[in-house]
Simulated assay, not measured.
Amino acid sequence: MFRHWKWAAIVLAVLIATNTVTVFVTKGIVHGDSQHARPIIATGSNPLGTECLKDVVTANSVRPPGGAFELKLLYSTLCDAVWAKVARADNAGFGNRITVTVFQFSDPQGKTRQFADEFNVDSAYTMVIVRHDPTDRLCATGSVTNGSAEIKVDTPICM
C-alpha cells in the first residue's frame, strides 16, 4: 500500500508542476507578450488599416527648395516596417504627378523596393518594407510635377 502511495505522490507532484508551468506560459502569451507580438504584415503590404498606424512616427523628412512638398520616411516599431509618403504643400495636385520610392540603401533597385506614381492627387505613399535585419538602412526619394516642371528630392533621406 505504501508503494502505491509513493507513486501517486510523484504523479501528483509532476501534474501540479506541469500545470503550473502551463498556466504561467499561457498567461504570459495571452496577457503579456501578445501586446508586443509583431502584427502579420509583409513587404509590399498596404500600411493603411493595419496595426502599423498605431505607433507610426516620422523617421526622417525633407522639404525641397521652394517647399512645394514634403517627403516623409515613416516607421512603425510595432511592425518593424517603413514606408514613404509625399504630401504636396502647393495644392497643385490636379493635373500633376507625384512619385515616391522607398528602398534598401544596400540594394536600391532590389525586390523589396516599393514605388508609387500617382496623378491628380495631393499625396501619395508607398507600400511597406518590413525589416528583417535591424541593421537595414532604408531610404526614400520623391518628386512632384507642376506643369512641365519636376521638383525632386535627389539625395535620398534615410533611417
Rank of each mutant, 00 (worst) to 15 (best):
S45W: 04
A84R: 00
T155R: 14
E150V: 14
V86Y: 06
E51W: 02
R88M: 04
S76M: 06
K72M: 11
R38G: 00
F94A: 14
I151E: 05
P156S: 09
A42I: 04
R131D: 06
P64E: 06
V100T: 11
D80W: 05
P65S: 14
V102T: 14
N96H: 08
V23E: 10
F119N: 11
R97A: 08
Q109R: 13
L73C: 09
D90Y: 07
G95W: 05
P156F: 06
D80L: 09
T101D: 10
D80Y: 06
A37S: 05
I98V: 11
K54W: 05
I40E: 13
H132D: 13
T20L: 15
S148Q: 13
L15A: 13
A81Y: 00
V62D: 02
Y75D: 03
V82Y: 11
F119C: 01
I10D: 03
L74G: 00
L138D: 01
V153P: 07
A92Y: 02
I40N: 14
I16H: 07
T43L: 08
A81G: 10
I157A: 07
V86F: 03
A68Q: 14
M159W: 14
W7I: 09
R63N: 14
I98P: 02
G110T: 04
K72Y: 04
V121T: 08
L53M: 15
M159F: 12
A124D: 02
D133W: 04
A92D: 10
M1A: 11
A140I: 01
D80S: 13
L15K: 04
K85G: 00
R137C: 08
P65M: 07
T99M: 09
A42C: 05
T135K: 13
V121L: 09
S34M: 10
V57I: 15
C158N: 06
A68D: 11
Q114A: 02
C52R: 00
Y75C: 03
T141L: 04
A9W: 09
G28Q: 09
T20N: 09
A116K: 09
D133L: 10
S76Y: 04
G142N: 07
H31E: 14
A124T: 09
D33M: 09
L78I: 09
N60Q: 13
H4K: 12
C158R: 07
N146T: 10
D122K: 00
S45L: 02
E150C: 03
I151R: 01
G32T: 12
E51Q: 15
D117T: 08
R131K: 15
R88D: 06
